[in-house]
Design a protein around this nucleic acid. Structure first.
Lengths: 343, 343
DNA sequence: ACGATCTATGTAAAGGTTTACATCATGGGA
DNA sequence: TCCCATGATGTAAACCTTTACATAGATCGT
């Protein structure tokens, strides 16, 4: 049955003794075809093993059934689970996904722009907080697009993320409940919106607990493990230490933990640490890291669903969807060491 | 300049005052076009911002410029760096890659088979050790394909991997050099070939060191963290303990380390542990894990290069390419505890 | 019984590209 | 000077699909 080249719609039509138009209708709008005919067509399809040629279909339709997902770093531990969500939802709509990897290189971004321009993708999911296409982006005709994690600054594109304020609030509330008053916040100037919102949650929590602004310690890193460690070193040069470190993300928290370990401190006996994201490593640290989990699969699913909304109604859908993050309690937080407890 | 719909080859032809055939030639076979004409065409392309419509091109050519990469688990820490290698090499040939995620579900595999059948991919990279398409795979017309990590059992497909024997040998030689004689090997029955080869390296190393077969301890897991832990528990029920654990992969090693930590042992003072793969977590463990690094980016690059060889010459290229793994010395190995040292 | 409406199907064009073949001009060899 | 080879370009078909429009048969109301 399987000939050298794949069966076309004409092969099916010949066997079913109908026209190719009828075959196409039997597949895509079966209700427009008589029952008996549909049966014949289905049999012919089974015999030939016909699958519609996606390229011809896309060419005719002027759009593909692929969604392009552009991420700066595929290896990012946050990425893969999101991808699962994106993928499942896309497939549920009969679409496939195509992953692009920019590595923050505008040159690479441009290649994907070419890609989009040649109609090879019906939609775009962006992981970067910025259109990674350089200046041409302005003139380019972008397909319906959705951002993930962060709004896209130069694009006016709806996005799906997590409620950073609420997440940070959960972390700080836990620390407060354990008895901490002096809590350092180690930030990350790169991911600006996430940073400011998590910071906002931190401040709100301390406000609610009545911790005076003067007791708050803010440090800036860049979100990497190394920067967490560096921030810690800076802190140790000051005279007053916090009893807990609330970190803007897990990487930073890991850096802090490594730094504290190197100085011979025990976590959580001497210091408590929290992160944000719940990357896989978080559970393998010693001690395991108490953090805020991003509902990654849900974010992916939600982003893709939003994209399909855009693809069907052209109306601009909701511009921001924030999912609720969960507090994951592990072993890096306990009551403050005695020396910190207020008498 | 940017009209509502993307420029076609006809727009370019009109502006350059040539036929569309000449435009096509100017792009793909410039040597067949007069210099002056080529210049006009290039200007017209610049003016219109023309990019060739990939779908029309693929339809005409009967093949796409996409390579499908099928992996059982995109979140696998081994995956992302390989992907970078695959991606770079593909792009160097003017191809893009498409990632498919089977999650070991044959149903999903079939969807990708449909994909291949509709000519949407010119080639296939397989991460599973088995064609994930169920029984239809036999009748299906697969495009040129290459396996990664493992040979594809039911496919006769060339593959690129790492020299597992040599890698395991490096690990065992390190342990021997540190003075260990009683070394347990914790295996993984899932990835059969990798397992048996790493085991082979283990045996060869012990043979060379003159360690009698009776002193070798072999345990079976399934390659997960949990199974490493379980294997450890089994071992503790026996009377003779090893002084070192050589694990078939990092996940297993992490499980062993967690288990040893839970029993209150210190690594490497009480026991040494080695892994294989060098997943990102390996460097963040406490202590950091001594392991064998897979040259992941190189594997990806090499696999894609092999695929393009297949795509150009149809001759069957080399059937197995093994890259050399590196020993990464970290802190989970030291000389055996005194009680193990032979007097 | 006849026109109107509806349902099922067929015909043919269009989508953008590549390329075999045809055409035409040029230049060189005889 | 004439013919032929060569090089540059154009014409048109083909890749496979979807769908507007046309056609034809059936059903229904009067």
């Amino acid at each position: 049955m399987s000939s050298s080249s794949p069966a076309t719609i004409e092969d099916v039509a010949r066997i079913a003794q109908v026209s190719i138009a009828t075959v196409s209708r039997a597949i895509h709008t079966p209700e427009k075809v008589a029952n008996s005919t549909r049966l014949k067509v289905n049999q012919a399809i089974a015999i030939t093993g016909y699958t519609t040629n996606a390229m011809a279909r896309s060419l005719r339709l002027g759009r593909s059934n692929m969604i392009l997902v552009v991420a700066p770093d595929i290896g990012d531990p946050n990425f893969s689970n999101i991808l699962v969500g994106l993928e499942n939802e896309a497939r549920a709509h009969g679409y496939g996904i195509l992953i692009g990897h920019t590595q923050n290189d505008p040159q690479r971004g441009l290649e994907y722009l070419k890609f989009l321009n040649s109609n090879q993708a019906a939609g775009l999911i962006l992981f970067t907080g910025i259109l990674p296409f350089g200046h041409q982006s302005m003139t380019a005709r972008l397909p319906p697009s959705v951002g993930v994690f962060e709004p896209v600054y130069n694009g006016g594109i709806p996005y799906v993320g997590v409620d950073d304020i609420e997440g940070a609030r959960k972390a700080v509330d836990l620390l407060i409940a354990e008895g901490h008053r002096k809590i350092a916040f180690i930030g990350d100037s790169r991911t600006r919106l996430a940073y400011s919102r998590r910071r906002q949650g931190y401040d709100a929590g301390l406000d609610a607990a009545g911790v005076p602004v003067g007791d708050r310690i803010i440090l800036e890193g860049d979100g990497t493990i190394e920067s967490g460690r560096l921030a810690l070193e800076q802190l140790f040069m000051r005279d007053t230490l916090p009893s807990a470190f609330m970190c803007v993300n897990d990487q930073t928290a890991i850096g802090v933990m490594i730094g504290l370990g190197a100085r011979g401190y025990d976590i959580p006996t001497d210091f408590s640490v929290t992160g944000f994201d719940d990357v896989p490593q978080a559970s393998f640290m010693t001690p395991s890291l108490t953090t805020i989990r991003q509902p990654r699969t849900a974010i992916g699913k939600s982003a893709m669903a939003l994209l399909f909304e855009l693809l069907s109604n052209n109306e601009p859908a909701e511009t921001e969807i924030l999912l609720r993050p969960d507090l994951i309690v592990r072993n890096s937080v306990s009551a403050p060491a005695r020396r910190f407890v207020r008498r």
